[in-house]
Amino acid sequence: MKKISVAKTFIYIALVLLVVICFIPFYMMIINATRTNSEILQGFTVIPGAAIFENYQTLISYMDVWRGFTNSLIVAVSVTILNAYFSALTAFALVVYDFKWKNVIFVTFLVMMMVPGQLGLIGLYDLSEALGMLDTYWPLIIPAIAAPFTVFFFRQYLITTMPMSLLEAGRIDGASEIHMFHRIVLPILMPAIATMGIFTFIGSWNNYITPLVILRSPELFTLPVMMGALRGSPVASNLGAMYLGIAISVVPIMIAFLFLSRYIINSISSGAVKG
């Protein structure tokens, strides 16, 4: 027993050390966000500086990071909602009804799940140009309606968890099909929606290459594109402002995560086992 508690102490120390290592980059970032360019160039200290306000002025005079935040939020939330709703609808149709082409569609899904998103990137760019959608959010959002992986996941989930009898009962009561989808199927799917929603949201939040190719106007930039544009911008001559810009893009989402972490991580755990 003693052996185990000694081992446990060591393990805890090691774990805490790992956490510390994980957070050192963020720590450096936050400290340096408060220091002037020349202080940063002189060397690293563990104590914060006093230049955070000046750095903020430098940063904000060139780039409105909060705007990027809002933009990313708009895109990611829209993508997540469209993805969840239409994938659920499609999965519902695939599970509940029998129709021509059903198998064709299903097999197409399986194939498309293997296709890397970049395959159609150049085509998507040109399509957006043809549709007059360059420099808008549409090419980033609309494709979320057709997400084979999410449909696949929902389909598997529905097959195992949805009692068909519930639908039969509904039909006898005269409920319309779409009504039943909203009242019965969506609630049943909720855990799966939450799991996929988190992945979809994070995926959209982090997406860099598509908005990089599609967006041009700085006021439409999402956060990743803004970060990319920060390099080589006038801000880049001031390291303190650079660190601050990165920190602003990182810290709020960290705080939001800490509030939601238990929920998010449980969803991921359950999603992993079912998927």
Binding site: F86, S87, L89, T90, F92, A93, L94, V96, Y97, D98, F99, K100, I105, M112, V115, L119, G120, L121, I122, G123, L124, D126, L127, P139, I142, P143, I145, A146, P148, V151, E177, I178, F181
Partner: peptide
């Protein structure tokens, strides 16, 4: 039953899929 509705339900997916997924791939 109701297979006509099924087409309606999968229509958004299929249309968007064809336009924004399949077509760009062929275009590429």
């Amino acid at each position: 039953k109701n297979n006509r509705r099924a087409y309606l339900f999968i229509a958004p997916f299929v249309i968007v899929f064809l336009i924004f997924n399949i077509y760009p791939i062929f275009l590429t």
